[in-house]
Amino acid sequence: MSAILIFLGLVTAIAGWWLARQRLMSKPWLEVGPIDAFPETEAPVMHPAKIGLGVFLAVVGAIFALLISAYFMRMAYADWQATPMPWLLWLNTGMLVLASVALQCAVVAAHKGQLDNLKFALLTGALTSVAFLGGQLLAWRDLAAGGYYAADNPAVSFFYLITAMHGLHIIGGLFVLGRANVRAWRGDKLARLVLTTELCAMYWHALLVVWLVLFAVLMGWAADFIDICRRLLS
């Protein structure tokens, strides 16, 4: 359960940092009157959707951290056999990086008011993401063609499970990104596209980070890394 505990440690650190600024040590019964004196303790002026997405990403992070925890726990058992990873995954990773970069460009374009750039960046983001999903499907096909089915060996089961879970999250994001594309290409006012673009970019960056971690775990680097650390310690 170490992966999830590390993840929760991170979440706790963020929550603690935020709580530390909320004057939890103050004595509220002594402070009558509006607290203009302490503006930082009022509700922040960020868009709720961004905070909402942030919280949602914490939930998503917990899901994947738990899957990784389960992966490592299961790995310790005798019947575990590492699977050959389809080389296609490298290409897919590249696609997802591109998608993230494109969406970052979209955010920049939106802030600068460049509608055309925004449109193309959004489209690139969506297309590379679809390419990523297609690539993942091909990777599945490769594995199955090599005789690795989901039920055969736990490493393979985990591969299918984890990639499917990650892919589902991308598909969910594509609904929003698709809508943003439609609106951008239909000629919505740019000012109304800023928020959704920012949200998409944030989500894609997070899913990219998740994927990079998952990739490291599935490729076995994470386990090697832990091994090395362990040896260094002892």
Binding site: R23, L24, S26, P28, P34, I35, A43, P44, G52, V59
Partner: peptide
């Protein structure tokens, strides 16, 4: 539940009225 939960959390974080600090 996750859909509802996001609401409850963000409402407390974000939609508190003026003067409603956490310690109030």
């Amino acid at each position: 539940f996750t859909m509802g939960g996001l609401n409850y959390v963000v409402t407390v974080l974000q939609a508190r009225t003026r003067g409603m600090t956490l310690m109030r």
